[in-house]
């Protein structure tokens, strides 16, 4: 078998465009997911009442059902339920945002809970207003502590975008399958996107692991 470089070069622009779609969809879902995650995190931290129960239900449900099922549900049920047309890209973003929101809520919460109790006590003892306690005492160290988990989640999100090929979103995996079927050069296109995914994801996962080790060394006394 010969590796058909010329096919790859010929359809290179299309692959690169699909690469862009993967990144844009990840970015939008991540941003919406951060907002949802912050709301759900605050709800769960409140520890009681309706907001608490609703947050727990949201987090548990969207963390436990498979992403593919969620994507298909949004794609095939949501337009019917709301009787509106939703593009497959928008469906993908909705599903991945819900998935991100649930995961990020737990990551944020772990970060907040990792801030030593004494820091908050000291701030209370100094009569610092609650908003400032959150802004200046809890959030900065919480962000530092949750960064490895956050970046690790980012790698999961980038991988999850490939699942949108199941609902015909023109991201990398979908475009590669289509081009593979068209040219019969499956091996070239699928290998090419595997490499692209690896190039995209590997730096994040190395960074996440390194910074986690550093964090452990610093706080693990």
């Amino acid at each position: 078998m010969r590796f058909e470089w010329d096919q790859l070069i010929r359809y290179g622009p299309e692959l690169l465009q699909a690469f862009g779609v993967t990144i844009v969809i990840s970015a939008i879902s991540l941003i919406i997911g951060i907002v949802l995650g912050m709301i759900a995190c605050l709800g769960k931290l409140s520890g009681q009442g309706g907001a608490y129960r609703l947050s727990i239900a949201f987090i548990d449900f969207f963390r436990t059902i498979p992403e593919v099922v969620l994507i298909f549900w949004v794609y095939s049920c949501l337009p019917l339920l709301l009787s509106v047309r939703i593009s497959s890209e928008a469906c993908g973003v909705i599903a991945l945002s819900l998935f991100s929101g649930a995961y990020l809520a737990e990551i944020f919460r772990a970060g907040v809970l990792a801030v030593p109790r004494g820091q908050v006590d000291a701030a209370h003892a100094l009569a610092i207003p609650r908003l400032h306690i959150w802004r200046k005492i809890i959030i900065p160290p919480a962000i530092r502590r949750m960064m490895p988990a956050f970046v690790n989640f980012l790698t999961e999100l980038l991988k999850a975008t490939s699942l949108l090929s199941a609902i015909a979103v023109a991201e990398m995996a979908y475009v590669a399958s289509i081009l593979g079927a068209k040219t019969l050069s499956y091996f070239e296109f699928l290998s090419a996107i595997a490499v692209l995914y690896f190039i995209l994801i590997f730096p994040f996962s190395v960074w996440a692991r390194r910074s986690e080790k550093k964090l452990l060394q610093r706080t693990g006394h």
Binding site: G118, Q119, D121, A122, A123, A125, A127, K136, I137
Partner: peptide, 17 residues
């Protein structure tokens, strides 16, 4: 809390400041 200052066993200084 404004009237009463507190000093803790573990200092509890804000480590990022």
């Amino acid at each position: 809390r404004r009237e009463v200052g507190m000093v803790f066993q573990q200092f509890n200084l804000f480590e990022h400041m």
